Amino acid sequence: MSGDVAGEPVTAYRAVALQSACHAVNRAADAAASRDMIRAAIDRVHDQVTATKRFVGPGLRLVVLPEYLLTGHPIGEPLEEWCERGALAAEGPEYARLAEIARDAGVFLCVNGYELDEHFPGVYFQASVVFGPAGETVLRYRRLNSMFAVTPHDILTRYLEVYGEDALFPVARTEIGTLAAIASEEILFPEVARCLAMRGAEVFLHSSSEVASALLSPKNVAKLARAVENGAYVVSANTAGVHGTGLPAESGDGASQIVDHRGIVLAKAGQGESMAANAEIDLAALRRARRTPEMMNLLPRQRFELYAPSYAGTSFYPPDSVRPGETARGHFAATQRRVIERLSGDGLI
């Protein structure tokens, strides 16, 4: 492989969608016990990432972890409680430890979890954070579509005042290509991937915890579609079971995969903890395909001016619907019900 020296551009390298088990913190006795479980989870990640690097070889440059691997997801806990139990501080010890793992293994490491923000006390965001092989933070993406958690869109005016438009759809231009993150069921929202592709994204890092299926489930269809639509790789890591929630643990277990820019599945894991979903990311082939005039090169064929007026003149789910510190967990479902009622009344659904 060319460009094996750290920091030099590469034309091809290996990536892995690391399928790991999640041990949820919901039933931990208190916040301190939750933090102990998070630390143990990070230790497991360290062991698995470094062992995977030894097995796959020095060409491994990118590791994507599953969704909320360190904590599991909230199950009705008030927002303030989950801030204490399952959310990480951006400059806190957990992120520092994850950065060390990326540095120790010499890889780009994408982790997804819940995080706090000093500008928005009382709420948390679900974030995908990418650490580089020097331990630096190269990307922070905060999920924009969620059924049960606060997103930047829910506090959009203030969020833009603090971070600006560029924070909504960030990409990282690195020696292993232009990286972008997509969280969980956001793979079902084509606009998210498209906005990232507009900014040059070549490799989508998809952290998920989903019901695994050998069938063409909605998420499996979406992974193929997002790859083809945007001429981009999708590295999709699913959990190897979620333990400690009361649900059958293996419900979200298996089918981590890597899809290339043609929509071809290059590698796919079965069930259980696994690094089987590893494959070559061929940036040279991707860029060659993007620069070739042909029917299936869809990205440069996009006519965005046709669609822009429809988007600009339409609002379904409202922005700025959350007041930090004043919003209860039931707000999100209630808001969706109101949107459905309005759209139904307008004859749109």
Rank of each mutant, 00 (worst) to 15 (best):
M1W: 09
M1Q: 04
S2A: 06
V5K: 10
V5T: 13
E8L: 10
V10N: 02
T11Q: 14
A12Y: 00
A21F: 07
V25D: 12
D30K: 04
A31S: 11
A32G: 11
R35F: 08
D36K: 14
D36S: 14
A41K: 03
A41I: 03
D43G: 10
T50A: 05
A51W: 09
R54L: 10
V56L: 09
G57H: 12
P58C: 03
R61W: 03
V64M: 07
V64W: 14
P66K: 09
G72E: 05
H73G: 11
G86T: 04
A90C: 06
A96K: 12
A96C: 03
I101Y: 00
I101K: 05
R103G: 12
R103C: 11
F108N: 03
F108Q: 04
L109F: 00
G113W: 07
Y114R: 08
Y114P: 01
Y114C: 05
D117E: 06
H119G: 10
F120E: 08
F120H: 02
P121K: 07
A127F: 04
V130H: 02
R140D: 14
Y141I: 03
Y141E: 06
H153S: 09
H153M: 08
D154E: 14
L156S: 02
R158D: 09
Y163G: 00
P170K: 04
A181C: 15
E186H: 00
I187H: 00
P190G: 02
V192T: 05
R194I: 01
C195T: 08
L196G: 10
E202H: 04
V203P: 02
E210S: 10
L215G: 12
P218N: 05
V221D: 11
A222N: 02
K223R: 14
G231H: 11
V235G: 03
S236F: 03
H243L: 09
G244P: 07
T245K: 00
G246F: 08
P248Q: 10
E250F: 08
G254H: 02
I258P: 07
G263K: 05
V265I: 15
L266V: 01
A267T: 01
A267L: 05
Q271S: 14
A276F: 02
A277D: 01
I281D: 04
A284Q: 13
A284Y: 08
A285T: 03
A285V: 02
L286G: 13
L286K: 04
L299H: 13
Q302N: 13
R303S: 06
E305A: 15
E305Q: 13
E305I: 08
P309E: 10
P309L: 06
S310H: 15
Y311R: 13
A312W: 10
P319V: 01
G325P: 00
E326W: 14
A328S: 14
A328L: 11
R329V: 13
G330E: 15
G330S: 15
R338Y: 00
R342Y: 11
L343K: 06
D346F: 12
D346W: 10
G347N: 04
G347L: 08
I349P: 01
